[in-house]
Amino acid sequence: MADTLLKVDGLQAWYGESHILHGIGFEIARGELVTLLGRNGAGKTTTLKSVMGIVEKRTGSVTFDGRETVGLPSDQIARLGLAYCPEERGIFSSLNVEENLLLPPVVRPGGMSLAEIYQLFPNLMERRRSQGTKLSGGEQQMLAIGRILRTGASLLLLDEPTEGLAPVIVQRIGDIIHQLKGRGFTILLVEQNFHFAATVADRHYVMEDGRVVDMIASADVQQNIGKLQAYLGV
């Protein structure tokens, strides 16, 4: 690929005694939106955590913008320009909405301003003095995404941003992810909701049992729909 931002090669990861990732590899070009698909337990979330450096043990290679990150602690990885939005959203209950938004430090120039983020998520503006965890699920998800846009990170790792949300909110999140791609963010998205993923992504990697087993470009999804359904067990 011409302009690879993230390159993962032979990545293995463990939680305690259990070996979760068995040597996975994939690449993401700058400005691309790529999803990781797969059933529960395939290792998608662990992949994001491994890229971010927050698993107990990992080996192999993860290069970001040409720089090897395996061996770096997660705070230094973040400072290279990666930002992470966890599946459980990780909203801090002892911080109000605005404190949550301002928490991640700016690691690179070129991030969005607070005003721009509020423009993108008007609800958060209204509730900026509320306790973070008092928001609705959808608002918390928007807060979790909004929070990592300020930092100047160029790669966003989003773990199941639509999980448990009403269809109208899912659509709204889809719009936002589109807009973020339009702004030049590179995005690695973990999704269970394939229909949602298909509408936003350029390419899909399919994971099974801690391995990447297939790659399908969005344009080819229709031809491969049967294969995909078999992978995902739908």
Partner: peptide, 10 residues
């Protein structure tokens, strides 16, 4: 609350 996530923010 969550040292791991705070660290992952840099």
């Amino acid at each position: 609350e969550n040292p791991t996530l705070v660290r992952a923010f840099g």
